[in-house]
């Protein structure tokens, strides 16, 4: 684990750049992480982020893709359009959550 400075905030991250403390997250951080993977966040992305953070706070772990689709009410196909480089990991990454452990 190490510390990175994202959007002017010092945050703890793992070796793959996933934040390890969700409390350190801010919306500006999400925007910067998103930009680093080539995304500019839309209203639909924010809907995903909002669900992921809420769900992770409830369950103690980041949701899998299928759970995001159901909970955020966004079809799986659209999740792939929103995060073309891998919605299963990027949704959690921009949401300031740890690397997801769900297989679906």
């Amino acid at each position: 684990m190490s510390t990175a400075t994202i959007a002017g905030h010092a945050v703890s991250v793992d070796a793959d750049g996933f934040m390890t403390d969700p409390q350190q997250w801010t919306p500006e951080i999400a925007t910067v992480i998103a930009a680093s993977v080539g995304l500019s966040l839309t209203e639909r992305h924010w809907k995903v982020i909002e669900f992921c953070r809420r769900d992770a706070a409830d369950k103690g772990e980041p949701p899998g893709l299928r759970r995001i689709a159901q909970g955020a009410e966004i079809p799986v196909k659209e999740l792939y359009q929103l995060f073309p480089k891998g919605p299963g990991i990027l949704a959690a990454k921009v949401s300031g959550l740890t690397k997801p452990k769900s297989c679906v």
Partner: peptide
């Protein structure tokens, strides 16, 4: 099926 889906979820 799980492996293929996991691959897609991480952009493979």
């Amino acid at each position: 099926l799980i492996l293929a889906n996991a691959a897609r979820m991480m952009g493979i």
